[in-house]
Design a protein around this nucleic acid. Sequence first.
DNA 1: TGTACATTTGCACTTATAAGCAAATGAAAA
DNA 2: TTTTCATTTGCTTATAAGTGCAAATGTACA
Lengths: 129, 129
Amino acid sequence: MKTYIKKLKCLGDENRIRILNTMIKANDKLCVCEIVDALNIPFYTISKHLKELKNADIIDESREGKFVFYQIKESEKPFDKNIIEIIKSIPESYLINDNILLQKRLNMREDGKCVIGITDKNQCSCKES
Amino acid sequence: MKTYIKKLKCLGDENRIRILNTMIKANDKLCVCEIVDALNIPFYTISKHLKELKNADIIDESREGKFVFYQIKESEKPFDKNIIEIIKSIPESYLINDNILLQKRLNMREDGKCVIGITDKNQCSCKES
DNA sequence: TGTACATTTGCACTTATAAGCAAATGAAAA
DNA sequence: TTTTCATTTGCTTATAAGTGCAAATGTACA
C-alpha cells in the first residue's frame, strides 16, 4: 500500500504535475535543463522533485555524458497507467504556457539530442504561477 | 489549477484513500459512523478527513436526523472520473479488510438505512496498518 | 427542556514538505 | 589535470499536515 500512497503523494504538488506533464507531452526522455527552461523553475527545485518522482518509481533516470535525462517509467499496471491518465485529463489551458516553452526548447535540439544547457542560469521560480 | 492540485493532494493520504474506497465499494452514501466502524479509525480523524475531501469537492455531505452522510460527488469531468478510477485500480488485497468490515457494517442497516451509531466508541486508529 | 448520541471543532504537539542558497559531485573538453 | 558546465546534495528556514484529546454543536427523543 505504501508504494501506492507514495506515488499519489507525488501528484499533490503543482511543480511535480508540471514536470510530469512535460514528459507526457514530449513523449520522450527529457534533459533536466530542458525541463528547467520549459517550466522556469530553479534547477535545484526541479532536481529535487525529479528525485522524488524517481524515488516513487514514476520516472526513470539515465545519463548521457554531461546531461541527465528523465522519462515516465513504462508500466502495464492499471494504477500506473491511471497516473498518466489523470495528468492528461487536466485541461490543457492550465499547462499551455509550459507546453509552448517546452516545444520551443525541444526545437533547439540537434539530431534529436539536447546540446545546450540551461538558457538562463538566473531564472527564478516566481515569474509565472 | 489549484482546484486540481487540491484534489490530487487529497489522494496522498492513506486514510483518505481508504475512506474513498469505502464509498466506491458501497456505491451509496455512507454514514460517518459506518465509515468509522469499517476502517477502525477514530471518529474525529475520519471527520477531519471527510471535511478535507468535501472541501476539495470530491465528496458531498448530507444530513438525515442525527446521522451525517457522505458520498462521492457525481461528475462528468474526465479528471474527476479518473480520480475514482485510480482508486479502483489499487489492488483489492490492500483494502480487503476494510471491504469486509464495511460489508458487515452495511448488513446492520434496516430498510437500507443506518440505524446505529459507532459500535465501539473506544476504537483506536492503530489496530491495523 | 434536558438528556443522549452523532459529529465537528479548537488547540497542542509532532512530523513532513518545499524552497533557497552554497557547496559538492561528475563528466567532458581545453 | 585544470576548467567548465550540468546536476545533485546538505543545511536552514518556513509552512503545511496529521493525530489526539476535550469541549462544542446539532438533532432527536424522553
